[in-house]
Design a protein around this nucleic acid. Sequence first.
DNA 1: TATGAATGAGAGTTCATTCAT
DNA 2: TATGAATGAACTCTCATTCAT
Lengths: 227, 227, 227, 227
Amino acid sequence: MSEKKQSPIKEKSPGTQTPSSLRRQREREHRYQTILTAAERLFATEGYHKTSMEQIANASEVSVGAVYFYFKNKEDLIIQLMDEIGYLLRRTIGSVFLTHGPTMESFKLTGQAFFEDFCVNNPEKCAIIFRESVGQSPEVETRRKVLFDKCTGDVFGALKSVIAHQELAFKDKLSAEVIAVSIMGIYERIAYQYLFWQDRSDELKSIGRDAVEFILGGVSNLVTKTE
Amino acid sequence: MSEKKQSPIKEKSPGTQTPSSLRRQREREHRYQTILTAAERLFATEGYHKTSMEQIANASEVSVGAVYFYFKNKEDLIIQLMDEIGYLLRRTIGSVFLTHGPTMESFKLTGQAFFEDFCVNNPEKCAIIFRESVGQSPEVETRRKVLFDKCTGDVFGALKSVIAHQELAFKDKLSAEVIAVSIMGIYERIAYQYLFWQDRSDELKSIGRDAVEFILGGVSNLVTKTE
Amino acid sequence: MSEKKQSPIKEKSPGTQTPSSLRRQREREHRYQTILTAAERLFATEGYHKTSMEQIANASEVSVGAVYFYFKNKEDLIIQLMDEIGYLLRRTIGSVFLTHGPTMESFKLTGQAFFEDFCVNNPEKCAIIFRESVGQSPEVETRRKVLFDKCTGDVFGALKSVIAHQELAFKDKLSAEVIAVSIMGIYERIAYQYLFWQDRSDELKSIGRDAVEFILGGVSNLVTKTE
Amino acid sequence: MSEKKQSPIKEKSPGTQTPSSLRRQREREHRYQTILTAAERLFATEGYHKTSMEQIANASEVSVGAVYFYFKNKEDLIIQLMDEIGYLLRRTIGSVFLTHGPTMESFKLTGQAFFEDFCVNNPEKCAIIFRESVGQSPEVETRRKVLFDKCTGDVFGALKSVIAHQELAFKDKLSAEVIAVSIMGIYERIAYQYLFWQDRSDELKSIGRDAVEFILGGVSNLVTKTE
DNA sequence: TATGAATGAGAGTTCATTCAT
DNA sequence: TATGAATGAACTCTCATTCAT
């Protein structure tokens, strides 16, 4: 119930570090990542529940005990994965806006970045956040909500900023939020459909283009000119 | 090896039926439904994995064996639920088009029917198809795909027919499909967001209106006038 | 614990019998046999434990309840089978002696009758007494012992009578018993080996001849001339 | 799908072994044997089916999980038992021939070794191979066949070698095989009869002597002098 | 007599987690 | 730090048997 230990990776004792302690630190981080990567692959291919801690240990070539040294429990594994993936996803999407500014063009590029880059290159990460983390424990569900809320918030923020720069306004106060949520839904379902249910990741480029077109049309329909 | 039994509900021996056999038939169907309803509630509130067959038996006030008499196994329970829900969902959505014909107005009404009627009145059914059936066994996943494919197909068909009646055409051959999938994504995510993650089902009416507006805008952006 | 009912077949109320009661009697016996035959086939092919009462009911085209009307329980089924088979087996073997008298020739013919007739024509009955009834409940084991004891007794009796008629005597007082048991062992194992483990029932004729030859040699080695 | 684990006993990593790893290895083997012995006793006294994994765990003073750590499943337990017993049986019988050469005397001594040594000292092992392993799963049945085939093969080989050394020949090409199978049948049934059905293991010495006499007589009857 | 739905104890098996070494 | 043997609660599923109709 109570927090029994911190992840050994997060805690860093800043200060004097001997060469050997640095090496150990490096090894620790390396193992941590090895385990996490093995878990990601197994969760994505076998399913979260069908994957046992022993399988993860074997795949990472460490003992079961070692997995428990680096991660509090099985739930912690998927939560760390979600954090990592969420970070990567937001960076992938966010970087577009950083370089292109608050324009409609950025919106297009963001969609492209998601479909052509993130999805195609990280199908297993997609499997984690869109499939394996769904309907698990309350804690995992909460983390999933946080992840989606952040992404939706990013879209929401970008949306507002783009609209503001174009002297436009949303139809009503819910509109921006609904748009953001809708966009997330489109992203999620298209990824699910064309990565997991059909194997058409090679078509994701054109599919993504249409989806972005759809989104832009949708946005324009919930926006009005300001005086 | 071979199928050991059919669901005792499905088989109907038409012919001479004594009153007592009719009553038994009724009782059987009643029990079947009782168990299924109990399972739906438990899956939705406790989660599919956390719910044990014993809990379902207790909630339906029958023995564990009785549950297994009516359903092959736990997986069968969720599959039957999905079938039932899928049927209800398609009827809810489809009936609009039957009464209003292939018009854009029907599209709006369909969205309303989904958000204001289906979601609000059947949050547990939404939980089953949008949350609890995700990432389970291959068989369940297949059924989920079938359910979604049917719905997407319905939307796809409606879309084509509406467009055709308006002397319009899709931008490219993928467009209609992408639109259909996107609409499903919007439906799914909005339901998930406002039913499970936030408790704003009372706002679903206005949210749904914006979502439909978004969808209509999206469609118009992937459509061109035919000569 | 206490005997709850008698098998409905065994009890016969001698006395006045109306035609309809006779017909019902016939039908009862017919059903009894149908069920028993189905059980025999299933036990032999699927195994005693793997066969459920429901399977037996289905195969006999009656309800589970009907099976329990004719047989006290599952154990009763295999016991009745063993009785029937034991009766047939003893008749097959015993009839030889009845027609050929207490001679060594009868011993040969008995062996032939067992291998070429009983085994070849009743592989499923062999499976019941040599395989499926082994290592079951104490009651079944007891019945198995009774069956074997009777057969061994038959052989024992025949042996003594043949030997007596030839003015011979057994080496010691155990000899006759040991011979009888050994003969049973040979019969059993050869049946098992060539019916279940290898499919060489077509060779059983020559195999049986050698086995009988072996037996005769064995007997002669435990017998001495009387003064 | 694939083999999930090897028996933790079989694998030996030759190489550097610390004292503590050696001790662990010893403890592992000890536990393995403890469980196996407990299973043997329970199977023999209670019956294979009536014995639950929990009973075995309790009798070995370990947890149920530990039993599954050392053995894949219940079937694996009886299979390992059969292997062990088969090994012991063949050694008991085979060692006679190694010390006494291919003579008829060896045949006698082998019979004695089986009845007076193996049976009397290992009634539970006899129960496993002659009773509890009969009519179980296909895998167990296959292993039983293998065990018997090996023993029969040993007898067969010994037989041929003895006969060859005495300038004798078998009556026909089946004879040697039939003799070997018959001998196995005699061994089996006598053990069964006098260990399980009657408690006359104290008489097994004289019974065995007669049985061996019987066998020798049988052999001589299927053998002819070569020119 | 016959039915077959219902029971419920009991089985085998899994696996996240712990902890002595 | 790292190991991996051990735990034991919990789960799904089976099936002989019963009994109201």
